[in-house]
Amino acid sequence: MNSPLIELAVVFSQLGLVAIGGVMSALPDIQRQVVEVHSWMTASEFAGAFALTQAAPGPNVMVVALVGWHVAGLAGALVALTSLIAPPAVLAYIVASLWRRFSGTDWVKDIQSSLNAVSVGLIAAGAALITLSAAQSPALDVVIIATTAAFLGSRIQPLWLLGAGALLGAAGLI
């Protein structure tokens, strides 16, 4: 169990199968495993890696590839990503053929609304954890509050504000 690749595979294959509501609901648990349980990254390194995936195209699951890359290079990235994706993908393939029989029934609707409520709380928890580790100075607090308001009040492309944040940070202004 000492190989980092095996550890990555064990951690992320379990996370994938419980990530109901998608990767964003699993964010608190991914952060807990990566930062607290395995100490693969610090909380601010994880927040930085997450920010990088938001500035790049592609699904949010790429944050897991970055964790793997940080731990064990290219092989780590591939193992982490594949471990997270493959088990739920196999499940999805099997369930897809049964779905037509259950879609829209009362039971499925009730399970969906219950899981949706749990997801909402988990997604907010992930947001809180990432935000707390990003809030390292009063100036950064202002950036967080201002960008939250901007994203809520307009349809601005995230990339523009991420770029502006990167420029301000690189110039040492925040």
Partner: peptide, 17 residues
């Protein structure tokens, strides 16, 4: 600094989402 600034914006993005 750039990563720190981006992480703060990503925090705002997540909160608004």
């Amino acid at each position: 600094g750039a990563l720190r600034g981006m992480a703060a914006v990503a925090g705002g993005l997540l909160l608004s989402a």
